Amino acid sequence: MEIIIKGANEEFAEKLVALAAQHHADLSISTVRPGWTVDRAERYLRDLTAGSRKMAEMVIGDGNGFIDADGIRSVLGKLNGPSNGLKRAVDRGIRKGWWPEGTPAPITPVSDPKNPSWHQTIAYRMDQELVPVFREAITRIATSKQAAESMGLTPGGAGKASA
C-alpha cells in the first residue's frame, strides 16, 4: 500500500499512518519534507533566468541573506521580471515534482513597514539558515561550469573541440 499525503500537517499524517498500520496494512513509509537542500537549491538556481539568478546571487552572496532593493535595481533595473522569476521557479519546481508542495520561497520581498499601503519592495531576504545551503549550490554550479569549460564544452552543454 502506498499512501501519499499532501498539504496535511505532520500530526495528521502520523495518525493516518498509524490507522493504516492498525488494519495490518503493509506500509513502506518515506517522508519528503518541504525545505531546501543543496540539491534542491542547485536545481532552483539553474532553473532561473539570468536576471533572476543574478538577483538571487546578490541576496545570497553580496547581501549575506539581505539586500536593499535599490542596490539590486542599480544592477538590474526594474525588479518585476527577476522577482517574479524567483516565485515562478518555486511554483514550477512543485509542479514538476522537484520539491514537495509547501516548500517555501527561499527569497522573499520585504515591504516598507512605515508605509504598508504602498507595496513597493524595499529589500529582499533569505533566512540565515538557508544562506550556506544556497552558497554551496552556487559553488557547485560554478565548479561544473569551470569543468565544462576546461573540457572545451560550451555553456549550453554542446561539445566543441578546442583548437
Score class of each variant (00 low, 15 high):
1 M>R: 06
3 I>A: 04
4 I>K: 06
5 I>W: 03
7 G>K: 08
8 A>S: 07
9 N>G: 03
11 E>D: 00
13 A>T: 10
14 E>L: 00
15 K>D: 09
19 L>Y: 01
21 A>R: 08
22 Q>N: 12
23 H>Q: 14
23 H>R: 14
24 H>Y: 09
25 A>N: 10
27 L>T: 03
28 S>N: 00
28 S>P: 00
29 I>M: 00
30 S>D: 01
31 T>Y: 04
32 V>F: 04
38 V>F: 02
38 V>K: 02
41 A>N: 12
49 T>P: 04
54 K>L: 14
55 M>P: 00
55 M>L: 10
56 A>D: 08
56 A>Q: 06
56 A>I: 09
57 E>M: 06
58 M>D: 03
58 M>E: 06
59 V>Q: 05
59 V>N: 08
62 D>N: 13
64 N>L: 10
65 G>D: 14
65 G>H: 07
67 I>S: 03
68 D>N: 15
69 A>C: 06
69 A>R: 04
70 D>E: 14
70 D>V: 11
70 D>Q: 10
70 D>H: 05
72 I>N: 05
72 I>Y: 01
76 L>Q: 03
77 G>F: 02
79 L>P: 01
79 L>G: 05
83 S>L: 01
85 G>M: 08
86 L>A: 04
87 K>Q: 14
88 R>E: 15
90 V>R: 02
90 V>I: 02
91 D>G: 15
92 R>K: 15
92 R>Q: 15
93 G>M: 04
94 I>G: 09
94 I>Y: 03
95 R>H: 15
96 K>Q: 15
97 G>S: 12
98 W>H: 15
99 W>G: 04
99 W>V: 04
100 P>N: 11
100 P>F: 06
101 E>S: 11
106 P>C: 09
111 S>N: 14
111 S>A: 14
113 P>C: 01
113 P>S: 10
113 P>T: 09
114 K>L: 10
115 N>D: 14
117 S>N: 13
117 S>R: 13
118 W>R: 09
121 T>H: 11
122 I>P: 07
123 A>H: 06
125 R>E: 14
132 P>T: 08
133 V>K: 05
136 E>R: 05
136 E>S: 12
137 A>V: 04
138 I>Y: 03
143 T>R: 00
143 T>N: 00
143 T>E: 06
146 Q>M: 07
146 Q>H: 04
148 A>F: 00
149 E>H: 05
152 G>A: 11
156 G>Q: 03
157 G>K: 03
157 G>L: 07
161 A>N: 14
161 A>F: 06
